[in-house]
């Protein structure tokens, strides 16, 4: 569905996207994971022709976004990073005008909007001005807008950033439903957990490059398998001393505590029983640990 080969986008000297090759297959949910400034949004902009590539090859639905962006844009929907709703219009007017942009026949517009507002639990706000909507409602409305044209490809650019957990889970549920119904999804996020919940396959991007690729489970198994214990900072010296003796133990520290990853759960419970250091939390390793291992830097913790 999307094929990128040696794709590059430079802004002057700075390479926002630096030689990446990605393939998104029909029907899958594909994630672009990485910190702010990794090049995720630049890549997404290139897929529908709003960012012009500097070099390399890119095709979407076997069309070239540089010359055939209108044809491409008829077949995809984008949940933009900013809501970018038209504040001068009401909820209903916003959606009707987008129906017109998408070339949906006049007779079908009203039903389509009603159906999707209902799907996103926004029917009660149909006539409301945009300013009166909460952050979560605006986000849901942007989903409605992206779905108006029954897209084959749904692009979600940081769909849940800044939302409360309830709205986030609601949106995850909707994305899963759409995915199951056969929609191909391209998702960018800097929340590891979001990628783990939603994506069949993902790439980790950092500084414009792809640093790892695979399914969430593959990446965890290959790169950072095992379990992670989080200890209070007061135990730092003791744990460092213990970890030095073990080759397959990995330590990482941030302001909230010491993260120790070991191959088995027993290693972690052993630290408690034998050395009296009680972990604050023990969990299986996840994509966050993969990211730490690959880039040596931390990503968002608030997923």
């Amino acid at each position: 569905m999307i094929q990128a080969r040696s794709l590059e986008k430079a802004f002057g000297e700075f390479k926002a996207v630096n030689n990446i090759s990605i393939e998104v297959k029909k029907g899958e949910c594909f994630g672009l994971l990485g910190p702010n400034g990794a090049g995720k949004s630049t890549f997404i902009g290139m897929t529908y022709g709003n960012v012009q590539r500097t070099s390399g090859e890119l095709s979407v639905f076997d069309l070239d976004p540089k010359t055939q962006s209108r044809e491409i844009k008829k077949r995809l929907g984008v949940v933009t990073q900013d809501n970018a709703l038209d504040e001068s219009l009401s909820v209903y007017e916003n959606m009707m005008i987008y129906c017109a942009f998408l070339g949906i026949p006049r007779s079908e517009r009203k039903d389509r909007v009603d159906e999707l507002l209902d799907y996103m639990n926004l029917s009660h706000k149909k006539m409301a001005p945009i300013q009166t909507l909460s952050g979560g409602m605006k986000r849901r409305l942007v989903f409605v807008r992206a779905l108006l044209g029954k897209p084959e490809l749904l692009i979600l650019d940081e769909p849940t950033t800044g939302l409360d957990p309830a709205v986030r889970h609601l949106l995850w549920g909707k994305v899963k439903e759409l995915h199951q119904a056969g929609t191909t999804i391209l998702l960018t996020t800097h929340y590891m957990h979001e990628a783990e919940v939603l994506c069949d396959r993902l790439v980790i991007m950092n500084q414009g490059q792809v640093t790892a690729e695979g399914s969430p489970q593959q990446l965890i198994q290959q790169t950072a398998p095992g379990f992670v214990g989080i200890f209070g900072l007061e135990g730092k010296i003791k744990i460092q001393a213990l970890a030095e003796k073990q080759e397959d133990w990995h330590l990482h520290e941030d302001s909230s505590g010491i993260y120790l990853r070991t191959q088995t759960l027993k290693d972690l419970t052993g630290i408690h029983s034998e050395h009296g250091l009680k972990p604050l939390q023990i969990r299986p390793s996840n994509l966050e640990d993969v990211f730490l291992k690959i880039t040596g830097q931390e990503l968002s913790n608030d997923a």
Binding site: Y48, N50, K73, T80, A84, E87
Partner: peptide
């Protein structure tokens, strides 16, 4: 309002 950014994701 960034409205053109969103419009440009449609055939516009």
């Amino acid at each position: 309002e960034n409205v053109f950014k969103a419009m440009l994701t449609t055939p516009m």
